[in-house]
């Protein structure tokens, strides 16, 4: 239990550091959010706007005001889309981004583990080479190259799937594939390496000597042990999928958080940049936390050392 409290505490501290760092970085950015409008707006109005967004106050004051709002889960107003605040932008985009992200992550995990296990079981044989070839192609071709190709062939030339934008579930198929390819490759490689190592362990020989079937050995004795090191990779993978949505949402013109984030950077929309960064980080940190818990469930050896490794 004390471990949980400690871990939660670390989580909040991490998040606070991220908020602070991002806040500082944000305010070091050259350029003014009203710069683009400045030509058309009279000086007074700009001044009023600066007041409204607290930009006229000293930085520490701005920081504390921001923290105060943040504690109430209020990420503040957006500068660019004047009628909306960051919360509602995130609320709007989150559904789409989450659907895309979760769909592709699930596909990646299932396909990746499958390919990795097949490769490991056929180590140095044809199926191993085939799986590794698929994996290496998946890592080599960036999603922003793959996505236009998918659109060109599946949507435009063959007309199998809708081109872009958002509507029905079928709109999510191409972006999901584009997003899943590189995680599939990463998982395949890790599972393969981990599985090959586990299959060489003595306890696999014990299991073999019990007269178990190969698949029983693989599933009951191999996979669980092989997945332990792989779990620690879900965090970065998750981060990769999040960042992947930046380009994918841009290419497919999907109004998800990723698109808002990229747009906000070009518009110098501080509150949106800040809000989305904090939101992404919070999600990632919470994911890492659950991964940590998952570790403890799946690996009985960790419980003993729970004090030591945190």
């Amino acid at each position: 239990m004390s471990y949980l409290i400690k871990r939660l505490f670390t989580m909040f501290v991490t998040l606070w550091i991220i908020v602070t760092l991002t806040f500082v970085i944000m305010h070091m950015i050259p350029g003014d959010p009203f710069a683009t409008d400045a030509k058309s707006l009279p000086e007074e109005i700009v001044q009023n706007m600066r007041e409204k967004y607290n930009l006229d106050k000293p930085l520490p004051t701005q920081y504390f005001l921001y923290l105060k709002d943040l504690v109430q889960l209020d990420l503040g107003p957006s500068i660019q889309s004047k009628s909306r605040d960051v919360n509602s932008l995130i609320a709007d985009g989150f559904g789409l981004s989450a659907l895309l992200g979760i769909q592709s992550l699930l596909i990646a995990i299932v396909v990746g583990i499958g390919l990795g296990v097949i490769a490991a079981l056929n180590h140095n044989r044809l199926l191993d080479y085939v799986s590794m070839f698929i994996a290496i192609i998946g890592i080599s071709v960036p999603s922003f190259i793959l996505a236009p190709l998918l659109i060109k062939y599946f949507a435009v030339e063959w007309g199998l799937l809708p081109v872009a934008a958002w509507g029905t579930w079928s709109h999510s198929i191409l972006p999901t594939i584009a997003l899943a390819v590189s995680p599939i490759a990463i998982i395949t490689r890790f599972v393969r390496a981990s599985m090959i190592e586990i299959l060489n362990q003595n306890f696999i020989k014990t299991a073999e000597a019990k007269g178990l079937h190969t698949w029983e050995i693989v599933i009951k004795h191999g996979l669980r042990n092989a997945l332990i090191p792989v779990i620690s990779f879900i965090g970065p993978l998750f981060a990769a999928v999040i960042t992947g949505t930046f380009v994918i949402e841009k290419i497919f013109a999907i109004p998800g958080i990723g698109k808002y984030f990229v747009d906000s950077i070009f518009n110098r929309d501080y509150p949106v940049i800040l809000g989305t960064t904090i939101f992404y980080s919070a999600i990632l940190i919470i994911t890492l936390f659950f991964i940590d818990l998952l570790y403890r469930v799946i690996d009985p050896r960790i419980k003993i050392a729970s004090g030591g490794d945190s």
Binding site: T10, P30, P236, T243, I273, T277
Partner: peptide, 24 residues
């Protein structure tokens, strides 16, 4: 390890993007 953990807690490309925005 705390420092590493904090940095690890932020998506890599997100940080890079923020820094790219900040610097020339």
């Amino acid at each position: 390890m705390r420092i590493v953990e904090v940095l690890f807690g932020i998506p890599y490309l997100l940080v890079v993007i923020l820094l790219m925005v900040m610097m020339k």
